[in-house]
Simulated scan of single mutants.
Amino acid sequence: MIESSEDNLQKLDIIQYACSLDGQPISGKSVHDIVESYTDGPQLARQVSASVNDFRTRFIMEHESFVTIRNIQIRVNHNLSRIFDTDDEDTEIDFFIHGLGGNLEQFEPILRLDDLCNRYFIAIDLPGFGKSEEYVDYSMGTIVDVVHETLIKILQDSNKKKSNIKFNVIGHSMGCYISLHYFQKYIADFHLRSLILLSPPKVYIPQLRKGYSVTQLGLYALSVFPSAFDYYRTRFDQSRGLKSSGIRDFFHNNSHDNIDLQYRKLWQYQNNIQIKSKSIVGYLRGWEQIDWGNLDDLIKSQSLNSSIKLLIIGGNQDAITPISDIQMFFDTLPIVNDKRLEIIESCSHNICFDCPEKICKIFLKDVLKQV
């Protein structure tokens, strides 16, 4: 089928609209005025902390709610109540799981693209991150259970039957690990159509294995004295503003002419300074490696080789998970008929913020199937 120029224009328009931040800050200021009002450097943390409404967007707030799981509040974003009015068996939901220190807002361009395409989405803040409350146990197995309970609660509150839904699970960074553990533990509970893994970490991280005493001892010390880690992050890293590691290593693009990019960097920085060291250390202490043999056996035993899609997406300038690690992750995943690796040029770890148009274009074609 040959696409008309009108079709291409509509797709281009929908991507531009999904990525545009015009009119989004609830402070009522323009994105340009917000960017111009901040001064990079040691004072930036204080400035962004005093003006949080500059970095709260209308789309996120319109879809924001909280559910109670295990006596803690979990922040979620979804569009089920607005457009989800059928239990048709072809119903699909995109379920987003962020990474270490991240939150659901990092998926904002794709969430907006989903919504524009009348696609159903659910995104959550993991316990201890974003606006979700802290939990007492950050072991990865427990977090996977909390993620599942959150998904079930959202569906129940929306009066939806998960038996009639096909899910696409989208994980970013550590969220790739959680997504794979989730798949391994709950494959019998839901119909998974695809796993879409963004900027996946190393296949195996020996420093985080339970028997690695040096790292575990250091993490234990930081869990007892998280204020020491907080002091380091505040005094020696975040004081550098947009040159701090959480921005420098997560973004490759540095165009000062791209106002939306500059805004997203400030937005990410504002989120970064709110992250508690206690939560980061808890997740690292609770890290669980993937049983790759079991994953392969599950695919075969469930006869998913011809029905499941595995899509890995990474940036060729990613300093956190280099392209060699992403390639190895891809190669280690089970062999299925529909398995593909996409590398985005001139893009780093925070794919959706660094290159929103590029990731939306891939998503539009390979997930939403609007080719």
Rank of each mutant, 00 (worst) to 15 (best):
I313F: 10
H78C: 08
F183M: 09
L100Y: 04
D7I: 14
I313W: 13
L242I: 10
F251T: 07
K160W: 06
S179A: 14
L208C: 04
F329A: 02
L180C: 02
S37Q: 05
V169I: 15
D189C: 14
I312K: 07
D366E: 12
I60H: 08
V203H: 00
H181N: 03
N316C: 00
D354H: 07
I205Y: 06
M174K: 03
C355Y: 14
I205M: 04
L208M: 01
Y283V: 11
I362H: 14
L261T: 11
V144R: 03
K153V: 00
K162L: 08
I196E: 04
E108G: 01
M328P: 12
F55S: 02
D257F: 08
K278G: 07
I273G: 06
I359T: 09
H256D: 02
V147D: 02
I273H: 03
Q238L: 11
I308T: 15
I165K: 06
T91L: 12
L21G: 05
D366L: 06
N103T: 11
F66M: 05
Q73G: 00
S158L: 08
H181K: 00
S158R: 12
G28L: 04
L341P: 08
G175I: 09
N103V: 11
S173T: 12
N350V: 08
S277W: 04
R56C: 11
K243G: 01
K309V: 03
H148I: 13
G41V: 00
L116N: 13
V367H: 02
P201T: 06
E3L: 05
P334Y: 14
L341Q: 10
K202N: 09
L12V: 08
S194G: 09
P127Q: 04
